[in-house]
Design a protein around this nucleic acid. Structure first.
Lengths: 157, 157
DNA sequence: AGTGAAATTCTGTAGCC
DNA sequence: GGCTACAGAATTTCACT
C-alpha cells in the first residue's frame, strides 16, 4: 500500500471525522479556515486514495443484548486451508473481528454473544464444527477498556 | 444495560448507518417508507437510549504507513492494579484496542506500528517499561480478514 | 489546489393527527 | 408514535483563479 502525503488540513479533517463521521463539512471548513468546497474535494481525494475506507455508526453491543465479549484463539489442522476457514467464520454473525496470526494459534477472533450459553453454543456448534478447526482457546473479555482508531501520523512523505 | 425494544424501522436505520454513517436521513426515510422527520426522531431516541454511541470515519492504517498489526497478551504482576495499567496503555497511541480478559493473560491489546522496528520499540520501550507489566506474548496479525459491527438482532423485548 | 456562487438536498423544529 | 411544512444549513457542482 502506497503511503499518501497528508498535509495539516488533511490531518485535521481526518481528526474531526474520526471522532464524528457526521460532522458537517462546513463546520470542518470553518475550523480549518478554508471553504466547504475544499473540504469536499479533499475528502473525495482521500476516499479515492484509499485513506478513508468509509464511515460507520458505532452501536452499543450491550444495549442490543450482547452482554458477553470473547476473544478466541483458533488452531486449524491444515493451515493451507486458512482462507476457507475464514470464509466459514465470516458467516457466523457473532464474530466481528478475524485475524490470521503467527504463533500458537492460526486465527484470532473477537465475538459478541448474548450470554454464556449463547457463547458455548457458538463455540461448540459453530466454530468447533468447522472441519479445519482442531482446537480453540477462549478468553472472556471482562471489560473492553477502549477501542479507537490509529492516530493520524504527524508527517508523511 | 437495559435492552431496548427495536422495531423493524429501527433495525433498518441501524443497518444503513452501520454501513455508511453519513447516509442522509432522507434517503433512509425513502428506503423505509417514512418521513425524514421520523428518522430524525428515531435516531435521536436511539442515541438517547445509548444504542447509538456515535459514528466514526474508518481510516486505512496501511495507507497511513501502519504496515504492522499485532495482538499482544499482557500479564501483570499485581492484578489489583489493572485499572492503572490500562490508563498507562491508553497513553500509547499505537494501541487501538484494550480488553481485560480471563485466562493466562490479564490484558489483551491490539496495536498498529509502521514496521517491525517500531513494534519492537513500542513493546520494549513503552509496554514492558510499565511497572506492572511482567510478561507479554506477541501475535503478529498477518491479515485482518474482517472487522465489522455486531448484527442487529431480529427481535428484542 | 482553492474559491464563490448557485442549485439542490438535507436537517431539525414546530404544530397537528 | 407518526405526518407535513418550513426556515436555515449543508452538500455538491462548476466556472474561474
Amino acid at each position: 500500500m502506497a503511503k499518501i502525503s497528508l498535509d495539516a488540513v488533511d490531518r485535521k479533517i481526518l481528526g474531526f471525522l474520526i471522532k464524528n463521521a457526521r460532522m458537517p463539512f462546513l463546520e470542518i471548513a470553518r475550523e480549518c479556515g478554508v471553504s466547504g468546497a475544499a473540504i469536499h474535494q479533499r475528502v473525495k481525494k482521500l476516499e479515492d486514495a484509499g485513506v478513508i475506507l468509509g464511515s460507520r455508526l458505532q452501536v452499543n453491543p450491550k444495549a442490543m443484548g450482547y452482554d458477553v465479549c470473547a476473544i478466541i484463539g483458533i488452531r486449524i489442522s491444515d493451515p493451507t486451508k486458512t482462507v476457507q476457514t475464514v470464509e466459514h467464520l465470516r458467516k457466523i454473525p457473532e464474530i466481528t473481528e478475524c485475524h490470521f496470526i503467527t504463533g500458537k494459534y492460526n486465527i484470532l477472533i473477537k465475538l459478541y454473544c448474548t450470554n454464556n450459553e449463547h457463547l458455548m453454543h457458538t463455540i461448540f456448534d459453530h466454530i468447533l464444527k468447522l472441519p479445519e478447526v482442531s482446537q480453540t482457546e477462549t478468553f472472556i473479555s471482562l471489560i473492553e477498556s477502549f477501542d479507537r482508531q490509529v492516530e493520524i501520523p504527524d508527517l508523511e512523505e
